[in-house]
C-alpha cells in the first residue's frame, strides 16, 4: 500500500509542475514587451501655412514605431534640459534664420521646460517671423496656460519695439520736477535696502 501511495503522490506532483511550466511559457508568448518611452524627443519643425494642400487620408491605424532610448536619471534629464535651454539662450541673441529655425523647432519639444524656454527665446530673438509658428504651437496644446503663453508671445512680437520710438522730446518743467522727486524716492529706497541688508546679515 505504501509504495503505491508514494508513486501516486509523485505522479500528481509531476503533472501539476508540467502544467504550470506549460502555462507560464504560453502566457509569456502572448504578452508583448513594454515599450520604452524617450525622455526627450526632438520635435519636427513647425511649418505654418494657411493653405490646405491635401484632403484627410483614409482612417488607417498605423502602430507607432518602437522607440528605443536610454532611460535617463532625473539628474541626466535635468542636464539635457539645461543644455538645450543654454542653446536656446545663445540662439536668441543671434539674428540669423538658422537660429530662429532652431528656436521654433523647440516650441513643440516634448519637454515642457524646453517649450517654455523656446517661447522666451522667440521673444528675445524679436522677429515677427516667429508669429505663425507660435500661433500654430498654441493649437497643439490643451494646456490653457501654455496656450496663453504662446499667444501672448505672438502678440508681443507684433508690437513695435521701444527702440523704434527713440525720438526724444524735451522735458516739460513739470516732468523735470517729477523726475527729481522720483530720483529722491529711489535714493531713499536704496539707502533703506542697504541698511536692511546690513541689519539682516550681520551676525548677532
Amino acid at each position: 500500500m505504501r509504495p503505491k501511495f508514494i508513486f501516486a503522490l509523485i505522479s500528481s506532483a509531476a503533472l501539476i509542475l508540467g502544467a504550470a511550466l506549460f502555462l507560464k511559457q504560453h502566457l509569456q508568448n502572448a504578452s508583448a514587451p513594454p515599450s520604452i518611452a524617450a525622455e526627450i524627443k526632438s520635435p519636427a519643425l513647425v511649418t505654418a501655412s494657411n493653405t490646405v494642400t491635401s484632403v484627410a487620408p483614409a482612417p488607417t491605424f498605423i502602430p507607432p514605431a518602437p522607440v528605443v532610448t536610454n532611460i535617463l536619471t532625473p539628474e541626466q534629464h535635468q542636464e539635457v534640459i539645461d543644455a538645450e535651454t543654454d542653446r536656446l539662450q545663445e540662439w536668441s541673441v543671434n539674428d540669423d534664420p538658422a537660429s530662429l529655425s532652431n528656436i521654433l523647432a523647440d516650441l513643440t519639444n516634448s519637454d515642457k521646460e524646453i517649450r517654455v524656454a523656446a517661447i522666451e527665446a522667440a521673444k528675445q530673438f524679436g522677429s515677427a517671423d516667429a508669429i505663425p509658428a507660435l500661433k500654430a504651437a498654441a493649437e497643439t496644446t490643451d494646456d490653457v496656460r501654455e496656450k496663453i503663453d504662446y499667444l501672448e508671445a505672438a502678440d508681443f512680437l507684433s508690437l513695435p519695439g521701444i527702440s523704434d520710438s527713440n525720438v526724444q522730446l524735451p522735458l516739460t518743467p513739470e516732468q523735470i520736477q517729477a523726475n527729481a522727486q522720483r530720483d529722491a524716492e529711489r535714493l531713499a529706497h536704496d539707502q533703506d535696502e542697504v541698511k536692511h541688508h546690513i541689519q539682516d546679515n550681520n551676525p548677532p
Binding site: 513695435p160 519695439g161 527702440s163
Partner: peptide, 17 residues
C-alpha cells in the same frame, strides 16, 4: 494710446543710442 515692446536686445539698443 500707443504700446511698444522691449526685450533684452531692445533695451541694449536704447542704451547704445
Amino acid at each position: 494710446l500707443k504700446t511698444v515692446s522691449f526685450n533684452s536686445q531692445k533695451l541694449i539698443d536704447r542704451l547704445n543710442a
